[in-house]
């Protein structure tokens, strides 16, 4: 069976798609046009960030909520607004349900969006999600009318619980934030995708384009990439690579990969070999 995104009601053979266009994904009431969600951290040069964002083709990009400071004037928010990119506030830096809900409310009020990337971390060393706090925060935010996109561990049981608690999308990590270690447990990611009724977005851990393609091949609807682009030697070139990788992953998932085999299977005919092995002896 081919891995078909949850949103494609009637799977279209890849051969009938026009020019490699990747369809949008529905996350709650929000339509995600590009399956490459970008982050904005990890780069100081705003002009370089702008180039990378444009090259990535992203339509949704994360920001953090922080105290206003005078240096904020040429803000990332006004840049995203100018580029026509939707903003996805996150709750990065929150450790508790209370802080998470307040940060989400401030994000909704400041940026006029119900989208929220729910991120409740357990400690500053691993930055791993605290799934127990995350579950409670997700429930409260869903009740308050948010569209929660929930960052979580690569635990299939936790992903299901978050979906039941009201997550509009579950976002398992491939590896810890900023590590670029790729997808450490592809089996778990595939299992999460196969059972989820909401879109799965691979969040955190991606280090290079092939890993973004793999995420989509495993069944993810989208990927979220920050450091892999913003900290690349050439962020703009990596942004383009990510865009192409997401498209490649989508089309290869829909095309249906061959099964893995233990032994070789010749693709050339066995008949008519010019010098069969037995004539050489």
């Amino acid at each position: 069976m081919t891995t078909t995104p949850a949103t494609a009601s009637t799977p279209t053979p890849a051969s009938e798609t026009d020019g490699g266009v990747v369809p949008s994904v529905q996350i709650g009431s929000y339509t995600l046009e590009s399956r490459l969600i970008m982050g904005t951290g990890g780069i100081t040069d705003l002009a370089a960030l702008e180039k990378a964002l444009v090259q990535s083709g992203t339509t949704l990009t994360t920001v953090a909520m922080r105290r206003y400071s005078p240096e904020t004037k040429t803000s990332v928010f006004s840049m995203l607004e100018r580029l026509g990119i939707d903003v996805l506030p996150n709750t990065a830096g929150c450790y508790t349900v209370k802080d998470t809900v307040l940060t989400a409310e401030l994000g909704r009020e400041a940026l006029e969006t119900s989208l929220i990337k729910v991120e409740v971390i357990a400690d500053e060393h691993t930055l791993l999600p605290d799934v127990i706090e995350t579950l409670e925060a997700t429930e409260q935010l869903a009740d308050r009318g948010f569209i929660p996109l929930v960052y979580t561990s690569d635990d299939p049981a936790a992903a299901l619980r978050l979906e039941q608690a009201g997550a509009a999308a579950v976002m398992p990590l491939g590896a810890p934030i900023g590590t670029g270690l790729g997808i450490l447990n592809p089996h778990n990611i595939e299992l999460i995708c196969s059972r989820a009724k909401v879109p799965v977005v691979l969040d955190a851990g991606i280090g290079t384009a092939s890993e973004a393609a793999l995420a989509i091949e495993l069944g993810c609807s989208a990927v979220l990439v920050a450091s892999a682009v913003t900290r690349a030697q050439d962020p703009t070139a990596m942004a383009e690579a990510m865009r192409l990788a997401v498209a490649a992953g989508f089309h290869s998932a829909r095309a249906g990969r061959i099964p893995r085999r233990e032994h070789a299977l010749a693709s050339s005919p066995a008949e008519g070999i010019i010098n069969p092995l037995d004539t050489l002896t």
């Binding site: 982050g39 951290g41 994360t62 953090a64 909520m65 922080r66 206003y68 506030p89 400041a110």
Partner: peptide
């Protein structure tokens, strides 16, 4: 008072 805004991150 807390006055907050969007900054780069995530």
């Amino acid at each position: 008072l807390e006055i907050v805004t969007a900054v780069q991150g995530g």
